[in-house]
Every structure is written in structure tokens, then in C-alpha cells.
Amino acid sequence: MTVPRLLSYHPTKITASQREHPILPPLLEIIGLHTEFRTGAGIVRAVDGVSYGVEAGETVAVVGESGSGKSVTALSVMRLIPDPPGQITAGSVMFAGRDLLTLSEPEMRQVRGGEIGMVFQEPMTSLNPVLTIGRQITETLEQHRGLDSAAATQRAIDLLNQVGIAEPVRRLQQYPHQLSGGMRQRVMIAIALACDPKLIIADEPTTALDVTIQAQILELMKGLSRDRGIALIIITHNLGVVARYADQVNVMYAGRIVESGPAAEIYHDPRHPYTVALLRSVPRLDRPRQARLDPVEGQPPDLTRLDAGCAFRPRCRLADAGCAVARPALTQVGKAGHSAACFKAAA
């Protein structure tokens, strides 16, 4: 693994808290992660020095728009980046005392679906269309837990009950296309839960679902997390979902975390101009109509053409010449645990 010349490591809330409580490291700690994609248009630094941590039982949201690197960060944690064209070039991912980036492939396979469960956005493409629901759940159990077929089936029935699927015995015989979108996502959660994971990574788990079904799925995940102390990473662009469910929030822009902190801090005292603009631009259901929305002007950046300065600078109302010189590092702003990567955010 090569270390880039300008390895930008930002001390985050988690490393600070780690210093205070050296006995209890976080469940997951991503440190200085860099993931690149070699494309025809040049090298895309999809993840450009991301560090964050997840404590046991905590719900951490990663918020950002398409291309901000939020999903690539999660895929890097699971070592699911297609290589080529992708490559994790630096950083470490500490999980339960080990660096996942140094594990062998068979060891990593035990982590995926075993200690860390995953729920993806599109349950139709992440389930295998030619295998029954039952087979897809029991496969996980046989692989990771070494259960025999009868025991695995029994456990699969239990799991479907836990995720609120009626008539589990009949459902086990069915194929994904026979289930509704909400039901498929419940099956994905059942598979993620199969081996009692300590962490579930959910990448836009409800984006493809209707709003009443979205609420059911998120309540289910939050309930499971609360009852069993499973930590959750929820990757989303929906600021409402984050407000309802997250303890900690990381806002990403152009491959970096630009603001990080407890949910209440991020929403009530946002410091990075991007976070401020994003929160201001969304219309709210609980407020009467206002004259005009206040959008974030301009377009998201082209990641092959980033310069040395702050990536948000072209769209930022506070930007000046100083912002072109270097990319600002995450530094503490406001209360403890709240940090922002902006030269103008300090106060």
C-alpha cells in the first residue's frame, strides 16, 4: 500500500475521544482512508482522507450528494471496491481490534455478512433473482455459522418473524420478484441480521421505497439497533431521515468530510457553508410556504479537476482568495465533538 505524498489526516472527534478513553476504542474507526478510481478522464479521488468512528450501539449518518464519496467509503470498509479501476491507496479501518484493510480475503469474507451486515439501496438488484428467499438467508447461516440445513431453515423462519414478515414458512419458498419492495428490504435486513452482527451498514436503505414503507423499514432498523446494541451506519441524502434517526452526523462533499458532530449540533448550529446551504435549501413540511427556496447555486464539482483549494469554493458565498490556497482541515468548532473543514467556520 502506497502512501500519497500529501496524506491529509484530520484528527476527528473519535480520535479525541479515544485519547480521553484509551481503554475503550470505538467499534469501527476509519482513519485517513483514500480510495481512487483510475478512469479515462483521470484519477478520481472518490474518498480523499476520510476519518470517522462508530461507537457500539450508535447510529451514525453519512450525508452527501451523489459523487460525494459516501458510498465508496462504505464499500472500502467492506473491501468491495472493484479493482481495477478502484484502489484503496491509504488509510486503515480498525474494527474490533483489527485493521480490515490488512486481512486476507478468506478472513474478510468472515467479516462481511458475519460481523458486519450490509443493506443496500435497491433490494431487487442485491438479492439473487434465481434463488429463493430461504436459500439466500440459509446460505449466510451455513457459510458463517456452519449450521446444517434444518437448523438454518429454523433460524431463517425466526429472522423473518423478527423483521415483521407474515407467513415466514411460505415466504421462504418464494423468489424476490414475488415480494414487494418493502418486503424485499425486510429480507435484506434479515440476511444482515442472520449472524448477529455488531454493525450494519445501510446504504440508502429506503431511497427506492414509498414514504410509509420507508418509515416502517427505518423504525424496524432503529428498533433492532436499540434492542440488540447493533451500531448502524446510515448513508443517505435525506436530511429528514438523518434528523429522525442519527446520533452522529458526517457531512461529505467531494470525497471529504466537511462537517462532523452530534445531530443536534449539526442541525441547530451548522458551521460549514455547505451544511448551512443544504439545510436552508430544503422545503419543510411543517412550515407554511415561503417566498422562494434558497438553493445551493452551481453544480457539484468534477472530481477529476479539483485544484489545491477548498472544493466547495466555487459555490460558496463566503469564499475569498485564501480559500484557493489549500483545502481546509477538519477543526473543532463550537461544542466538543463538532468539527468543520472551513477557514471561515471558526468561531
Partner: peptide
């Protein structure tokens, strides 16, 4: 009512 209640508000204190 169910539809409106299902929409989360971008405000942790309200939620």
C-alpha cells in the same frame, strides 16, 4: 395523516 406523519422533518429536536 399517515402519509404526513411518515415524512421526517429535518430537525432533530422536532423529531
Amino acid at each position: 395523516r399517515a402519509l404526513l406523519a411518515a415524512v421526517p422533518t429535518p430537525d432533530p429536536t422536532v423529531e
